[in-house]
Design a protein around this nucleic acid. Structure first.
Lengths: 243, 243
DNA sequence: ACCTGAACACCGTTCAAGT
DNA sequence: ACCTGAACACCGTTCAAGT
């Protein structure tokens, strides 16, 4: 599925099962699995070629045989995480789209620390996602989106969905930036009822539960009902496009 | 406005205008300005404390007096870029929201390379944005969003807006990852008309113009009409919330 | 084919010191 | 108050070598 680079495929077979000295029995799959394990348990900043190698009991350079560039491994990680997105099956496009968006979010929620890798950069390994894209286009056509607005509708759903979720699970400042959460709480506590009446009134319901005004991300403070609402907003908005 | 850390404010004044040897006449503002300049012209990967110091003709450590941590400077950069977002003035909430979203995007478009800094991590320096948040809450109330859905509506707009734009201007792979764009073109060229009929039909209109299927970002291929559509989708969706 | 080892050109940051 | 200089613990990656 995620085959790394294509370089190391096929053993040749002539040396059979024998282990040789100086061989760590590495494989693209083992490296990938360890990478995800490290990211999940120790965070994104622990995901370096050197720390990964140490975790695998191997020289940093050993990894480069399976993944020539760090970015290749990043791509594989993203592809693996997104391969968890099982396609939805609902008959009506609205139910389908709701399901689609929730399944995407669920896949990220399983590996929240990879979110910055998905949101922050253009990922080239697209081959596995073609089915996902085709399905979305099909349902948008069913919904009645006219052909000349299809690309815009696709981008709206995809950009909104991926954007919201990667925001929700955005990187929290490292422990080195200590005290930034208390500074945030201070700002929130000091909101002036005259200058910001609505914000003042909503403060307790918004703090640490809404974008910009939080100090934890979706891994510890998931925005479940906000994402539900976002889904409804998108569905109603797409429906309005079909006039 | 963006005062860095608050540590270096006030000269004391007793040494007047005299320059001393070993002093580079640095200031938080000068460092910030140079940082944005470097990011804009040389890209985000050129934004390191050491390269920045070299550009300012100074020791790397000189910067740390004005910004104790790199993250403090990152925060200042983000605050500065977002301070460009002038508030909208339209009387009707729909026009206002459309304007709001476009002004946010325009601010990012002026400094596209900072987008990953905004999308990828929780930013604590929120003080300057309180007006923006208050304004949005006010307009959402005007729109008729009921109080018990206000937080969700706020998160939908904010998450969608920031998410879409940071996705649009996401980091393009470094030149070291050469050939990834041609691999992408190859994938697109090889789309099977049987397996992916809609995608096949839309290919020429989607390639390099839609999420996942592009090799340039919004800095060179802006998604103007997709963002317009996204704005309409959000407005219609919010309207549907007000039942 | 697959891995080790040494080396290069980078990072952010601490600590002691200068003026 | 503001900056230099040396040093530490990291990075990704290249290159030559081993088996």
């Amino acid at each position: 599925m995620a085959d790394g680079t294509g370089t190391g495929v096929g053993d040749g077979g002539h040396d059979g099962m024998r282990k040789r000295a100086g061989r760590a029995e590495l494989s693209p799959e083992k490296v990938l699995a360890k990478a995800i394990e490290v990211i999940d348990s120790d965070g994104l900043e622990a995901f370096s070629m050197r720390q990964l190698a140490k975790g695998l009991g191997v020289t940093p350079m050993a990894l480069y045989w399976h993944y020539p560039k760090r970015h290749d491994l990043v791509r594989a990680v993203v592809a693996e995480v997104l391969s968890d997105v099982v396609p939805a099956h609902a008959p009506h496009w609205e139910d389908w789209l709701r399901d689609y968006m929730h399944r995407f979010r669920a896949a990220i929620a399983r590996h929240p620390n990879v979110a910055p890798l998905i949101g922050g950069q253009l990922i080239s390994n697209v081959s596995g996602n073609l089915d996902m894209i085709e399905a979305l286009l099909t349902r948008l056509e069913e919904a009645g989106v006219p052909e000349h607005r299809m690309v815009q509708a696709y981008n709206s759903v995809m950009g909104g969905m991926v954007g919201f979720v990667t925001q929700e699970f955005a990187l929290v400042p490292a422990q080195s930036d200590a005290g930034w959460d208390s500074r945030m709480k201070e700002v929130l506590g000091g909101i002036d009822a005259e200058r910001h009446p609505h914000l003042h009134a909503m403060r307790s319901r918004m703090e640490n539960r809404s974008f910009i005004l939080r100090w934890e991300n979706g891994a510890t403070k998931p925005m479940d009902d906000s994402f539900d609402t976002f889904t409804e907003v998108m569905i109603a908005g797409i429906r309005a496009l079909t006039v």
